[in-house]
Design a protein around this nucleic acid. Structure first.
Lengths: 252, 252
DNA sequence: CGTTCTTTTGATGATGCTCAACTGGGGTGG
DNA sequence: CCACCCCAGTTGAGCATCATCAAAAGAACG
């Protein structure tokens, strides 16, 4: 539910605080400004409209909304979903801070998926038209942007492999290991973290049912692969989980 | 098997003939030069190294080859495949003329998949570093390139939906309809075409077995949805196939 | 403390895989 | 020319995996 607006702070101060600043953002090593000098980072800052708070369960953009901005996640987690041909909501990915939302919308000028915050989050709005203008002046920025788009392509390829071949236990193991490594890249623990998404979201994303996820969690627990308490997860046998994801170890 | 090299033509003439020319290519409405004027098309031509023949079953590039070029398919068909964690070859897509190969390699400077010609084909080699230089001078080209990368992202998303949810008959119907619409975009029949790939490739791509594909073909035939003779296909009830792909019609 | 939503657990069944045998077309060599 | 082989594709029987349905148990929230 929306918070009441507070009137007791001078609005100018708020606007200042809301202005994005890549150089002071902890994510600038992973995010769009990666590898830029101070001067170029400032130029990027100038086009980034504003920092925007996105409360939990809020829709950042909907399917077929006109495409204006990319969004860099400054803080928090999102899920992206599409409506499949049969009319069902299907989750295509989970995104965390430092990642970019909306790249699939470039091709048609309309969003192909819907993005929802999994917790109270913050994004930087990046007007794409202005970003493209900037590219001709900052080749480094352009190149890194291409890397990020390409990375999204390879990410989706690995999901394709997962959904096309792997069995339920492999999928779930791969999911956990993937989350862990992304947290590790952000300086957090690779083996101990909180699931920001519901079991239902996980199941939906992995092409399984919520019941299957529940059973898998139980099986993994019994085998000493992990601890789970509600959404708190500890990966106890990371090596084994990786091997299972790779299909070299099977889970009895 | 490789053809013997012919020595009875002046090599200079060959080189001329092999030079790419976007303006004279029938694919320039779909491919990279879309929307460019003559002058800009010439500049693009200048960086495109050469037109290269790729005989059937030839590997255009392998996984983890260093990334130098993108390839625009001028003629023919390709498949791209990856080795999955379990060590199996898995097909991630089928590409036809006017489409771009290699975009997934940008992120790491190495190819993530292998591309093989399904028939005798021709590609244009596009040195990516030089293409990126050109972008700062031709914004239209840059924008269209972004659209193509974005399109690849949405293509993969739809495969994710297919592999994650759809049942075997839906997958196969979707596969056929998709091929048809791509042929239609190239001025060919949407309902009558030749499969360039083996049953095995189709099965692999759709996350099914070759036996399932065989049974599906039979079922579709019996229901009067299509004719199949070897690799020759006629879609008889296109509407029904589309409905099946969408899941609104079920196949008894 | 009840209500509601999420998660767990159990029983049953369908879908599509595995394994195995068979078919048919194209090429090769005697 | 025919026998043979080889490969791609087809067909059949049995089975594993995971979905479905149903119901209970547990967490979250007012």
């Amino acid at each position: 539910m929306p918070q009441p607006i507070s009137f007791d702070l001078p609005p100018t101060l708020d606007v200042q605080a809301l202005r994005a600043s890549c150089s002071r953002c902890s994510m600038h090593q992973l995010c769009l400004p990666m590898g830029l000098g101070e001067a170029d980072m400032d130029r990027l800052d100038q086009i980034i409209g504003r920092r925007r708070k996105v409360p939990r369960d809020t829709i950042l953009y909907r399917m077929s909304d006109p495409f204006v901005n990319l969004y860099a996640i400054r803080l928090g987690h999102f899920k992206t979903s599409q409506i499949d041909p049969a009319g069902e909501q299907r989750i295509t990915g989970f995104q965390m801070n430092g990642e970019l939302l909306g790249m699939d919308a470039i091709s048609t000028d309309h969003h192909h998926c819907e993005a929802v915050a999994l917790e109270d989050s913050e994004v930087c709005e990046i007007p794409f038209a202005r970003l493209e203008e900037l590219f001709s002046h900052i080749p480094t920025l352009l190149h890194h942007f291409h890397r990020m788009m390409s990375q999204e392509i390879t990410r989706e390829q690995s999901v394709m492999l997962l959904l096309g071949n792997m069995r339920a236990d492999q999928r779930f193991a791969a999911f956990l290991v993937n989350l862990g490594s992304r947290y590790a890249a952000r300086g957090y623990s690779a083996t101990q973290f909180q699931l920001r998404m519901s079991r239902e979201d996980i199941a939906n994303y992995l092409g399984l049912t919520i019941e299957s996820i529940s059973r898998l969690i139980n099986k993994f627990k019994k085998q000493g692969l992990m601890h789970v308490r509600n959404r708190e997860v500890v990966l106890l046998d990371h090596a084994m989980l990786k091997a299972m994801a790779a299909g070299t170890e099977t889970c009895r």
